[in-house]
Computed example of a mutant assay.
Amino acid sequence: MGAHHHHDHHEASGSELTKVAQATLEKSGEQWTTMRASIFDALAKFDKPASAYDIADAVSKAEGRRVAANSVYRILDLFVGANLARRVESSNAYIANAHPDCLHDCIFLVCDSCGQTTHIDDDKIANNVRHAAEAAGFSPVRPVIEVRGKCSECEHAA
């Protein structure tokens, strides 16, 4: 299977994405707590990958109380494990998964100029990476591919 497209819940409606994320988390046996909902909502509002500190600040401002980054990290780890969020490894930042009800390896296009990060699905590329790892005697668990460069907006602005 090559590249394909999904219904993007994030673009359709923030509340639709939240509903799908909640259902996905609950299906995995976890609870959708008020704090988890607040962190997911804050994460989903960022238009670029956000650090745990960015998210903690956003939730703290929204709730009028301090939320510690270490609490956010724990919830983000849960979200990554449940496919609700993706971690951009090179920047230690997170993005909400626009289709949490579908599992794919991560392929990120990261703009070095503006920081915009685009997640694409291409099972052919991901499978080739998995097969190459296995051929080298390695058992891939969660491949993450990051392509650094310039987005089309930054490329045209130069």
Rank of each mutant, 00 (worst) to 15 (best):
M35H: 11
R36A: 05
A37R: 15
S38N: 14
S38G: 02
S38D: 09
S38K: 13
I39E: 02
I39P: 14
F40R: 06
F40T: 05
F40S: 05
F40E: 04
A42V: 01
A42M: 05
A42E: 00
A42I: 08
L43G: 06
A44N: 04
A44Y: 00
A44E: 01
A44K: 08
K45I: 02
F46N: 07
F46R: 07
K48I: 09
P49M: 01
P49K: 03
P49Q: 01
A50Q: 06
S51N: 04
S51D: 01
A52E: 11
A52N: 13
A52Q: 08
Y53L: 12
Y53H: 13
Y53S: 07
D54N: 14
D54M: 02
D54W: 09
I55R: 05
D57F: 06
A58T: 03
V59K: 13
V59A: 09
V59P: 06
S60A: 12
S60D: 05
K61T: 14
K61F: 12
K61A: 15
K61W: 08
K61V: 13
K61C: 04
A62S: 15
A62V: 08
A62G: 14
A62R: 15
G64E: 02
G64I: 01
R65Q: 10
R65S: 14
R65H: 12
R66E: 06
R66S: 07
R66Q: 10
V67P: 12
V67D: 01
A68T: 02
A68F: 09
A68H: 08
A69P: 09
A69Q: 13
A69W: 10
N70C: 14
S71G: 10
S71A: 11
S71P: 00
V72C: 12
Y73T: 13
Y73F: 15
R74F: 12
R74I: 04
I75K: 12
L76T: 01
D77N: 14
D77W: 08
L78N: 01
L78P: 12
L78Q: 05
L78F: 04
F79A: 07
F79Q: 08
V80P: 04
V80C: 14
G81H: 05
G81E: 04
G81S: 10
G81C: 04
G81L: 05
G81Q: 07
A82Y: 04
A82N: 01
N83K: 12
N83T: 06
L84G: 04
R86T: 05
R87E: 11
R87P: 13
R87Y: 08
V88M: 07
V88K: 11
V88P: 12
E89D: 12
E89A: 15
E89K: 15
E89V: 09
S90R: 11
S91F: 10
N92Y: 06
N92D: 13
N92I: 01
A93F: 00
A93D: 00
Y94Q: 04
Y94F: 14
I95L: 12
I95F: 00
I95Y: 00
A96P: 13
A96K: 03
N97I: 05
N97K: 10
A98R: 14
H99M: 06
P100F: 00
P100D: 01
P100K: 03
P100Q: 03
P100C: 02
D101P: 07
C102H: 12
L103V: 13
H104I: 09
H104D: 13
H104S: 12
D105I: 02
D105P: 07
I107F: 03
